[in-house]
Amino acid sequence: MRTRTYRENYRELTELLPYRSSWNWYALLLAVLVSLPFMVPTYVMTYVTLILIAAVGAVGLNIVTGTAGLISLGHAGFLAIGAYTAGIAISTYGWPIPAAILAAGFVSAAASLLVGVPSLRLKGLYLAITTLAFSIIVVHLINQWEGLTGGSSGMPVGRPDFLGIPMRSPASMFYLTLVIAGLTVLGTLNLLRSRVGRAWAALRDYDTAASMMGINLVRYKLLAFAVSSFITGVAGSLMALNIRYLNTDSFELIVSIEAIAMIIVGGLGSVRGAILGATLITVLPDFSRYVLSLFGGALGSIASGNTAEIKGIIYALVIMLFLRFEPDGLAHQWNRTKRFWSDWPYSRK
């Protein structure tokens, strides 16, 4: 019987994966994802693309809210900045896709300083409302700045070829998203097990104590915001490339709440949780609409006529039930299930 608690040295404590065999499983998962376009119909693949984009965004938010404990209700703003930066870079200036994605990340990270600086003095809910104000201002400015962003009528985004590879097909979009999602997850996991990640966890748990341990609060809080919004901006650029048409309707307040729902459902502070949460929250509205339509009759017609409302009710119920009954989220559930089977038949219920 194996146990997770016995570590012999410090290096084992910070290893990326606890066992050699885990690498095989993740290699298998990667192989399945890579061969997905050949195995499933196109609509499933575009669905997985959506999930991966959501996962990138959730991992980004998870850094600042889950790991560093700075509540952000304004990530729709960073998402919008990233999406519009990529859109403008590609459509107006004809940049190649990777350059546009990087630009989206860096512009978002720069904008995050606007929120990061007040975060040095604000605590808890005051900060949450400041980030909320930030995202409202961003969306409003995008709507006003018509010359640059197309205003409320929106803005088309092309998918230019990259190094002779055509990017127009859903499969190429899927691979692009997969590569970026993979890099994001790997980068975040490595960051979280380094000094930086431990510093963030320390300032989340007790910032006064953390600063006494020699952690520079100013630097690490700003860094948390910058890294988080870099990733969120990248997610925004993927969103722009995926929808190929930008409009501020995609960045309303409900998007920030959706993102918060993802990391709560998944489990705050856990990368795996963020991915699981993103999957669940992305799939749930369509899945439940499908289930409701099975009932047919009045219930089915309510479900098909009021998609936005059904979506709202489901998000609300999921957030409430998870907060009430499983505040540690799916990541905790995952670990429990895993322990149950690895200890079997000696596992306790």
Partner: peptide, 26 residues
Amino acid sequence: MLGQPVFSLVMMTIALAVMIRAVVGL
């Protein structure tokens, strides 16, 4: 939610806001 972190209760009210908006829309 008594005895839980404040953040949880705040999230509950956010969820409540989404819920009321959807129900009123329905």
